[in-house]
Design a protein around this nucleic acid. Structure first.
Lengths: 251, 251
DNA sequence: TCGCTAACTTGATTCACATCATGGTGATAC
DNA sequence: GTATCACCATGATGTGAATCAAGTTAGCGA
């Protein structure tokens, strides 16, 4: 029996959670989602265009594939998954988005969202209207650069996933995902070794190009090898180095 | 025995090929690589920052993973492949770039190229220094938007590939690539049904997460089914609809 | 023209993961 | 309490593509 805090209850996010009075200046995540080089009044200007709407309930959509593209979004609390629906109706999860991360940028090219985004738990979201962001970017070179960088990062991360899917075994894929989540937790000053997975085994498998059964078996194997302790969605990394070896990515 | 023109000999690219006097205003590819909404003198300004260096020989690198990031590049003639080297020394091809297409944007996020790019045949390249492009973008909102869109497109294309790798069979993957190349040829007013593959079977396999042997077998199968005529690198699409069915992507 | 090498094809065998089948567990509703 | 349902674990079996192993062909330099 384990007790766990959902991310939205996490004390580290008090100022950033479901609090409507939050702004970029006082948000604990701003070191992650904002360019460091912004001046205070620049932050104020950015803050002015950002809309903070009511929290998203679990399983609620933030946007759907094909929706008219208006905004990109920053996750303030909770976790979202982005996914595409293939023509034969199957689902491909293209990413998980944790607090401080930006999603929706794939909608820019066609003025329509190229994927759907749904929350895996109650989530608070900052909406950033894109035309306003574009205007602001022409005035604030640092902001423009920041968004170029954010999009570039999304590209390199997608390329990482492409490599993972194309070259790595089931064990390696799952290990890599656990390390990724661990690292993103660390960036938010949360435990890198103990966390609760916000997504189901189905979602993990879908993201990694594996079936549920395989994901389940990999977790069992890792547990037997004493690399991970797995209690349903609760994960503890017992052997960080072992996990890295298993991921076979060197990093 | 088939006679084929390499892309650089293609009459459609007379003005855009290895001709050093070429500029954006007279380049036949500008409808592909430039924002349509640019005024003539805007094009001139863009033209002024673009550098046209001497042609790249086959197998020569345009940049390597880890190189300091300075510029993005537009392909004027020839074809390039982008690839990452995994830690255990294997190669993952992340994309092929045809005339009119832009590459190198994955280097923005870390100021270092995240992948290597090498030419598959003699190629002419336009180099676009990124800091100059950034400056120009603050002055020309259309240009800024264009680059946001280009990067967004790269993201959606990577997501397509992710889905392909994760959900589709060998046949479907190869069919999808053939359709992609066919479509990109059509965009450049070349034949959508007959073309020469600039890349080797190894590269195709590597890109699609398959071995050479599998790629070869798929081509043989397609030939037997009279969907494709395959003569080494020379491809003829005999049954467009059959190929689409085989790709199983609906589109 | 010959010889060499890289690129490609094809067949036989193996293997990692999918698929199919079943049972367990925990949460929510009644 | 127990019925129901979503989610997860695990075993048995099947299969598509990898691997291993020969060829064949095309391109290229001497």
């Amino acid at each position: 029996m384990t007790i766990h805090l959902s991310q939205s209850e996490d004390p580290a996010f008090k100022a950033c959670s479901h609090d409507y009075q939050v702004n970029c200046g006082n948000c604990r995540l701003n070191s992650i989602c904002l360019p460091l080089a912004l001046e205070n009044d620049d932050i104020q200007q950015l803050d002015d265009i950002i809309q903070r709407s009511k929290p998203l309930q679990k399983n609620q959509h933030l946007y759907r594939e094909g929706d008219n593209f208006q905004s990109v979004f920053a996750v303030r609390s909770g976790t979202l998954k982005a996914y595409k629906t293939t023509d034969d109706g199957r689902e491909q999860v293209t990413g998980f988005y944790f607090p401080g991360e930006i999603l929706g940028m794939d909608g820019i090219s066609n003025n329509a969202h190229a994927s759907s985004a749904k929350s895996l738990e109650t989530a608070a979201i900052c909406e950033i209207p894109f035309t306003a962001l574009e205007k602001l970017s022409t005035l604030m070179p640092n902001l423009q650069r920041h968004f170029f960088q954010l999009m570039s990062r999304e590209i390199t991360e997608d390329q990482q996933l492409i490599t993972l899917l194309s070259k790595n075994s089931a064990d390696e894929r799952v290990a890599a995902l656990m390390l990724s989540i661990s690292g993103r937790n660390a960036r938010r000053k949360l435990s890198a070794t103990q966390f609760r997975l916000p997504m189901s085994r189905v979602d993990i498998g879908n993201y990694l190009g594996l079936t549920v059964e395989t994901v389940s078996r990999v977790f069992s194997r890792m547990q037997k090898m004493e690399v991970l302790r797995v209690d349903n969605k609760e994960i503890e990394i017992l052997d960080q180095q072992g996990l890295k070896n298993m991921a076979n990515l060197g990093r």
